[in-house]
Design a protein around this nucleic acid. Structure first.
Lengths: 115, 115
DNA sequence: AGTAAAAACAACAAATAAGTTATAGAAAAA
DNA sequence: TTTTTCTATAACTTATTTGTTGTTTTTACT
């Protein structure tokens, strides 16, 4: 496997890494309805101040959100709603997986009663 | 933020977590061209045996790949090519980000010469 | 049976990351 | 100016996770 390919794949996995923490996804979700400042994000997510700040920095560095100071507070907003497309794709896939498992469960139950 | 929402978001972030490691994405990529056994994956990715085995377990548990023993070796294959849709979405997004940065760089250069 | 090959598993070391506490900085209000 | 409010940063602790080494298990072959 070529060095350049690995590097490119590394960028992709780094992108996914940003979305691989519940807290960060929660922060993104709280921003889905529009621009919010840190305190509002804290209240909506229930996360601590320093924690939210740190996650927001990660999200900003990765280009997920935009930072906009206004007076004392700082407002953040989603840069590109592609994130939600990604999440929806994953949600659909998870639903399918669950349905398949449910079906298997039903088959097992049927087998049980037929024995 | 509701408990059930957090739980659902946790499932989503767990899904992304699987894709957040270069090694695992490399393994998935090596399987893009078709079913392969562990040794073939090792050769294509350059990863160690135990390491590949562990990543394959993670991928299998998450429902990304299917396991199929054949004689002494075990073949793995992609279950759902949705992963590549996800990766392509991310790649497109990363390209756009890079283009924007390049444009900014050009603007900076132009500014430099005009001063 | 005994050996060889392939993959999984267990245990360990090292690296990475998350959350907390405490502190510092910056802007508005008193 | 002093104080208050909001956010960022640093230092630290703890928890996860990765990769490696060594061992075990399973299957095929002699």
């Amino acid at each position: 496997m070529e060095k350049s390919s690995v590097s490119a794949l590394g960028q992709v996995s780094d992108y996914f890494k940003v979305l691989s923490e519940v807290s960060r996804v929660m922060v993104l979700c709280s921003l889905k309805s529009g621009s919010k400042n840190v305190k509002e994000i804290m209240e909506e997510t229930g996360l601590g101040q320093a924690n939210v700040s740190k996650h927001l920095k990660v999200l900003k560095d990765a280009g997920f959100v935009d930072r906009q100071p206004e007076g004392v507070s700082v407002y953040y907003e989603i840069v590109d709603p592609i994130i939600f497309d990604l999440c929806n794709l994953v949600c659909d896939r998870l639903s399918v997986q669950l349905e398949e498992k449910a079906k298997q469960s039903e088959e097992l139950k049927a087998l049980h009663y037929s024995l």
